[in-house]
Computed example of a mutant assay.
Amino acid sequence: MSNDTSALTPLSRLPNFDPRAVPVLRTDADLPAVSADRLRPEALAQRFALPPSWQPEVTMERRFANRQPAQASVLVPIVLRDEPTVLLTQRTEHLSTHSGQVAFPGGRMDDTDATPAATALREAQEEVGLAPEHVRVLGSLPIYTTGTAYIVTPVVGLVSPGFSLQLNPDEVASAFEVPLAFLMNPANHRRHAYEAEGVRREWFSMPWMDGGQERFIWGATAGMLRNFYRFLAA
């Protein structure tokens, strides 16, 4: 389930800061996991067609980048295996923002993109070679604003098997899949907090062991997955 071209890279450009070393405050094992029947393809489609009343839990990070806000989209690609998975990427180390981090395929909206979904599909094809014809878009989750001033629309899509990936080596170090059931179980959602220069930052992490390698899912990606959990659990 993985397509790896590099070793684990640093997860933050901040000096003396590694999110993997920040203590876990707690997990949310007291919350129920999303049941398997709600993770079936048609149940997911029905949930987006008739969404419940719910509220996202995480929508904005404390801003730490001095740059103009930019509209962006990511694809939350749910691969239709016997047990559904989510396709994620590990970004290359040299990128200016979120380098080395686990992320959804996605990026900045272009003027030629008609919709956020068009951005997500284009970026997924450019980054990992996922052809749009393999993706059935279900809908979007609430906008998530990152600390680097990206205003992100997460677009959820079902990905039919049989696709092949071609990673863009300038942006993506590796691609891998994580079981959707693992990500939709809050017992695997770890809470962290870190204070520096009088500013407290809080985030979730959802580390996944991909063979012998830990994929440290945290920050914006984990925040959007947490919102997806709230949406499906509502």
Results as ranks from 00 to 15, higher is better:
2 S>Y: 02
6 S>F: 09
8 L>Q: 14
10 P>Q: 07
11 L>F: 03
13 R>N: 10
13 R>G: 10
16 N>Y: 15
18 D>E: 10
18 D>C: 07
19 P>R: 04
20 R>F: 10
25 L>S: 11
25 L>F: 08
26 R>D: 08
27 T>F: 14
28 D>S: 15
30 D>M: 07
33 A>N: 00
37 D>N: 14
40 R>V: 07
43 A>G: 01
45 A>E: 04
46 Q>R: 11
47 R>H: 15
52 P>A: 06
53 S>M: 12
55 Q>C: 11
59 T>I: 05
60 M>Y: 08
63 R>F: 04
66 N>S: 05
68 Q>H: 11
69 P>L: 12
69 P>Q: 15
79 V>F: 12
81 R>W: 07
84 P>A: 03
85 T>H: 03
87 L>C: 04
92 T>P: 01
94 H>K: 00
96 S>M: 10
100 G>Y: 07
100 G>P: 02
101 Q>R: 05
102 V>K: 01
105 P>D: 07
107 G>Y: 14
108 R>T: 14
109 M>W: 09
111 D>K: 10
114 A>R: 09
116 P>T: 02
118 A>W: 09
119 T>K: 05
121 L>H: 06
122 R>V: 01
123 E>T: 11
124 A>L: 06
124 A>V: 06
125 Q>D: 11
128 V>L: 15
129 G>I: 04
129 G>D: 02
131 A>P: 10
136 R>H: 04
139 G>R: 08
145 T>N: 15
148 T>L: 09
150 Y>I: 15
155 V>W: 08
161 P>F: 03
165 L>C: 01
171 E>R: 02
173 A>Q: 10
175 A>H: 03
175 A>D: 08
179 P>K: 06
180 L>V: 06
182 F>R: 13
192 H>M: 08
196 A>N: 03
209 M>I: 03
210 D>W: 09
211 G>L: 07
212 G>F: 08
213 Q>R: 13
214 E>A: 04
217 I>Q: 00
226 R>D: 07
228 F>A: 06
228 F>R: 02
234 A>N: 04
